Computed example of a mutant assay.
Amino acid sequence: MRALYTRAELVEGARQAIVAGSKSFRAASRLFDRETRERAWLLYWWCRHCDDACDGQTMGFGSGPKSPVAGLREKTLLAAAGQRVGEGPFDALGMLLRERPIPVSMLEDHLAGFALDERGWRPQTEEDLDRYCYHVAGVVGCMMAIVMGISPDDRETLERAADLGIAFQLSNIARDLREDSEAGRCYVPASWLADLGNHCTVHSAIATRLVDRVAAYEASARSGVAQLPFRSRVAVLAALRIYGAIGREVGRLGDQAWDRRVTIGKARKLGFLLPSLAEAARTRRA
């Protein structure tokens, strides 16, 4: 077991994880105050590690042995109980939980999404799709809201935070339709596929439906932004624009959307900053 990590070491490990794993989230996290930014990185490291371990990947790439969700859950509960695990992502989570009151039930909800993948689960209805998106991303939005200072008892704001995470995941599903299909994964509801010949193939009609749902969840998520501190409002609104742009670009490109991975360049990300600042200020005045 590795010697006890210091907080500085955990924050640095988490920073390195987000640099390697998510350009979009890293860009948005720069808008947080230092304390919130570091806590967001700690949460990201645990989430990223669990995701990679279940897929047998490193930062979303490559292939290798997969870790069972039961083992991840055991280590997660140890960290939640205040015990040292000796692995950076779990000790980072333990550090975060000592600083912010994230309910263990939310950690369990997130791991439940990986368990669905482990069982080879596929959605049958739109409600199934939404439930999956809640587990893998919506509950992360709830945890991030608590990291930003929202009370775990503020159900209304947490529900809006969950909507934001669901919107992000729907954009990811739209962007990765071909990649998922080639890997034997399908997150498209069977009820949709029945309309298209019952084949989980890349299809612009599927992307259009997904992007329409992104827009609906984004609109709902915006109503909770006012409860956040100003810098957190700016960061969330910037992230909303970045991930929303990914989904809309997929919808705009149609069948050409999967010729290459859709990304949002640094210049466009910076371009989202000014409208996010303006919207955050208007929301505060309101």
Score class of each variant (00 low, 15 high):
Phe168Ala: 03
Gln169Ala: 11
Ile173Gly: 00
Ser151Gly: 12
Leu170Ala: 00
Ala161Met: 12
Ala145Ile: 05
Asp153Val: 01
Phe168Tyr: 14
Glu159Ile: 07
Ala145Tyr: 07
Gly149Ala: 10
Leu158Arg: 01
Ile166Ala: 01
Phe168Val: 07
Leu158Met: 09
Asp153Gln: 15
Ile150Met: 12
Asp153Cys: 05
Asp154Ser: 03
Arg155His: 15
Gln169Cys: 02
Met148Ser: 13
Ser151Val: 03
Thr157Trp: 07
Asn172Ala: 02
Leu164Asn: 07
Gly149Lys: 11
Asp153Asn: 14
Arg160Ile: 05
Val147Arg: 09
Leu164Thr: 06
Met144His: 06
Ile166Thr: 15
Glu156Asn: 09
Pro152His: 12
Met144Asn: 13
Ser171Lys: 01
Leu158Tyr: 02
Ser171Trp: 00
Ile150Asp: 07
Gln169Tyr: 00
Glu159Pro: 06
Gln169Arg: 09
Ala161Tyr: 03
Glu156Arg: 15
Gly149Ile: 01
Met148Trp: 15
Ser151Thr: 03
Ala145Pro: 06
Leu158Cys: 03
Cys142Ile: 13
Gly165Asn: 11
Met143Gln: 14
Ile173Asn: 00
Phe168Leu: 06
Gly165Arg: 01
Ile146Tyr: 10
Pro152Val: 10
Ser171Gln: 04
Ser171Ile: 00
Ser151Glu: 09
Glu156Thr: 12
Met148Thr: 03
Met148Cys: 15
Phe168Gly: 04
Ala162Tyr: 09
Ala167Lys: 01
Met143Asp: 04
Thr157Gly: 08
Ser171His: 03
Leu164Asp: 05
Asp153Phe: 08
Cys142Val: 12
Glu159Val: 06
Ser151Trp: 07
Ile166Pro: 11
Asn172Asp: 07
Leu158Asp: 09
Glu159Leu: 15
Ile146Lys: 10
Arg160Tyr: 12
Met144Phe: 07
Arg155Val: 14
Gly149Asp: 04
Arg155Leu: 07
Arg160Asn: 05
Leu158Thr: 10
Ala145Glu: 12
Leu170Ser: 00
Leu158Lys: 05
Val147Asp: 00
Ser151Cys: 04
Asp154Cys: 05
Ala167Thr: 06
Asp154Arg: 07
Ile166Phe: 02
Leu164Pro: 01
Met148Gln: 15
Ser151Tyr: 01
Arg155Ala: 14
Thr157Met: 06
Met143Cys: 12
Gly149Gln: 11
Arg160Cys: 10
Gln169Phe: 02
Gly165Met: 00
Gln169Asp: 05
Gly149His: 09
Ser151Arg: 11
Ala161Pro: 09
Met143Asn: 11
Leu164Ala: 13
Arg155Tyr: 07
Phe168Gln: 08
Ile150Gln: 12
Pro152Phe: 09
Thr157Tyr: 08
Met144Pro: 05
Thr157Gln: 04
Glu159Gly: 15
Asp153His: 10
Ala161Gly: 13
Glu159Ala: 12
Arg160Lys: 13
Pro152Cys: 10
Asn172Met: 02
Leu158His: 01
Met148Ala: 15
Ile150Tyr: 05
Glu156Val: 13
Phe168Ile: 11
Asp154Ile: 03
Ile173Thr: 02
Ala162Asn: 13
